[in-house]
């Protein structure tokens, strides 16, 4: 009796949960499907779900018409560049704060966090004008720098919470064992910190890849990453849904995969360790 009730319950939950899950995922699924249709089929009524002539034409077309690869490359450079540079600055800082905390470490951490709370729009004008006067509008350099600064507090915080979990006694043991500071970092700290660094890297690439304020406001064509490139499809003459879908699918696919891998770290990173 009881077992059967549990089983029925499980079947009901399975059906319901899948329904909810597929509904939420539907816009993405629909985008992916549409990217394989022709423009005609894309706007056809009634819409065709699976039974249409599958074609990769849109993907080639997107590249032919607007040099998709350049924008994809911009996205790669900007997200990897800003995250990489951010890590370079943040790893020593987080290391110091986690293992050699001083009186003001906590205040510094909270202050760093508060810079993240600054709304981007509040400093739009100065950043725009600075970039303009340096001739950096529509350049990758400007975006790498700006996004690095935007994400630096998150990077420091994430690394800090990961480093905090490495017991201090282990580093002391290394010191007793004769490891110099450099060797301590190479042989002990880094291998233990790699998982944390990797998930920090992953989450921040995602955040930088999807950033859509500075990328829209500081680029026009040359340095436009995918966020800005896709936005150009909003103009009325750009209503090519199948091509939009193809471009969108390419833009979200890699990040979706990375995101699925980093779902655990996501919670921790975005709540600054408040929820683990």
């Amino acid at each position: 009796m009881a077992r059967e009730a549990t089983r029925n319950r499980k079947i009901a939950f399975t059906a319901f949960a899948w329904l909810v899950g597929l509904t939420l995922f539907f816009p993405i699924l629909w985008t992916i499907l549409t990217s394989f249709k022709t423009e005609g089929e894309a706007i056809a009524t009634p819409p065709s779900l699976l039974f249409f002539e599958w074609s990769l034409e849109n993907y080639f077309e997107v590249q032919r018409r607007s040099n998709y690869l350049r924008h994809a490359m911009n996205s790669v450079v900007i997200s990897l560049g800003s995250t990489g540079l951010g890590l370079l600055v943040a790893i020593p800082a987080a290391w110091a704060m986690a293992f050699s905390p001083g009186k003001h470490t906590k205040d510094i951490l909270m202050w760093m966090l508060s810079t993240k709370m600054l709304p981007a729009v509040g400093v739009l004008m100065p950043i725009y004008l600075i970039c303009q006067s340096l001739g950096l509008l529509d350049s990758r350099i400007a975006l790498v720098a700006v996004l690095m600064m935007m994400n630096l507090p998150i990077i420091v915080w994430m690394l800090y919470t990961y480093f905090k979990e490495i017991p201090g006694e282990i580093l002391e043991a290394a010191r007793m064992d004769g490891a110099s500071l450099g060797k301590e970092i190479v042989y002990v700290l880094t291998p233990m910190a790699v998982p944390g660094i990797a998930s920090t890297l992953l989450l921040n690439i995602i955040l930088a890849w999807n950033e859509a304020f500075w990328t829209l406001n500081l680029t026009s064509s040359q340095a436009a990453p995918l966020t800005a490139f896709i936005a150009s499809y909003s103009s009325p003459e750009g209503l090519f849904w199948a091509k939009l879908s193809a471009a969108s699918t390419l833009a979200i696919a890699p990040i979706l995969v990375m995101g699925w891998f980093s779902q655990k770290q996501l919670v921790r990173g975005l709540t600054f360790g408040a929820v683990k």
Partner: peptide, 30 residues
């Protein structure tokens, strides 16, 4: 003197073993 130069060895409360190294490498580390 720095800890390493005092020719002392320490056993910690939490053992402080290097979790990413094998037992062999742990013992070999110093």
């Amino acid at each position: 003197l720095a800890p390493a130069r005092r020719s002392l060895a320490m056993v910690f409360q939490s053992y402080a073993l290097y979790p990413h190294m094998s037992v062999y490498k742990n013992i070999a580390f110093p």
